[in-house]
Design a protein around this nucleic acid. Structure first.
Lengths: 229, 229
DNA sequence: CAGTGGTCTAGACCACTGA
DNA sequence: CAGTGGTCTAGACCACTGT
């Protein structure tokens, strides 16, 4: 094994960061690169492929490979399970179920999840604590047309998230991040002041084309979600 | 070309989602899979490799490939350039520089960027408009120890982001998402009410181990950042 | 139509690590 | 130490898409 694709990737990246191949520039084609590195084209291909995945370069057949004008445009966030997030901070995780109701889907939910009118849903409200402090409020809706078992499940000790993760093997997710103002209910659950600015994530989870669940997670004031790329 | 790696990947994923290979299970090794799909091992390798990248399975030499108990939760967000974000919405982009000052780094900034005391920085405040409405407020600090050219640059017509992108070829970034309450200055710049909940991102950009810039981007009320995974 | 990336193959050797 | 994934090679054909 002469030259690894990692070495090739690193060297190309170096040439880009050092301005040998500035943004917007065309870099040599795979055959030429392979020759200059003394390796097979497949090795170069993998290296450049990864650079494309990373958003560093842009590739088009016949047109060649170009260094992107705006190099990095993507960040990867880990979406933690609440329990883990709390335990990672060295705190004790505690969970309480605040409310549970079986009902028909409200209009706004029906539209988002494409539930027919009169579709039954399970609505849960929970608080996740880090030690004694409220850490996150969970407002969860589960589509009973798709997951009727949910109405039998006992959520007094286990959070719906962990139950769902164990029940659904794999899924498509649409996730949003936003800011919201605490209303009185939220303020009470999170032990903060009404009108506080709160970080919130919304998630819709699909399985085999059908919406399973909608959840809105609201964090305690001051929460920050961080990553590097 | 008999079987593509996409087909293999899709079929394996199907077997996982349909419970043929439930979470925690060991799936067949690459040689067996290649035989059963009637393709080369490299094809299977690429398929399973991607499933591992996607967090669906976990691979270890000798131990084999295992379906993850809880599929890893990762979301990829596009980090848009403001101009593009606005133009993608079909609005006209407009930019104004609100303030510009040369000064020594305040303590909190010095700590975050590891700037020595008395280090010089350029502090900029800008508003990015979508049509006539304020879309985003940019609070930007540039480390002049690393980028002295910034003090010469003219930011009256071009935003610092675009200037930086054109100047720095590639970089490491630490990014955070959070919620903040509008103070009077923010409210004025964004045309909203004080105490509104605003979505905010913070970014620190590093190049070759040195901090170049810190920026805090505050969005208009109601802004939502969305992705699928 | 011709140049470039996209992918597959068949075979090989290596690197890690569980039994 | 033996089984599994990790990677490279040399060659081939295909699929796009600019010119």
């Amino acid at each position: 094994m002469a030259v690894t694709f990692r070495e090739v990737k690193a060297d190309i990246l170096l040439k880009i960061t050092q301005g040998v191949w500035p943004p917007g520039d065309l870099i040599p084609n795979e055959v030429d690169l392979a020759e200059s590195y003394g390796c097979a084209r497949a090795t170069v291909n993998r290296a450049v492929q990864e650079l494309a995945d990373d958003g560093i370069v842009e590739r088009r057949r016949k047109a060649g490979t170009r260094v992107r004008m705006a190099p990095v445009r993507q960040a990867r966030f880990n979406i933690p399970i609440v329990r883990q997030e709390i335990e990672d901070r060295g705190a004790v995780y505690r969970y309480t179920l605040v409310n549970r109701e079986l009902r028909t889907a409200p209009d706004w939910l029906g539209k988002q999840l494409k539930i027919p009118p009169e579709g039954r849903v399970l609505h849960l409200a929970c608080v996740h604590y880090a030690d004694a402090t409220p850490f996150q409020f969970e407002d969860r809706w589960i589509n009973l047309d798709v997951l009727p078992e949910a109405s039998e499940a006992d959520f007094t000790n286990t959070g719906p998230n962990e139950w769902l993760v164990a029940t659904i093997p794999f899924s498509d997710v649409e996730i949003s991040f936003l800011a919201t103002q605490a209303d009185t209910a939220l303020a009470q659950h999170l032990g903060c002041t009404a009108r506080d600015a709160l970080f919130q994530t919304e998630r819709i989870t699909w399985w085999q084309g059908r919406a399973i669940t909608y959840v809105r997670l609201t964090y305690q004031p001051g929460h920050k979600m961080t990553t590097r790329y």
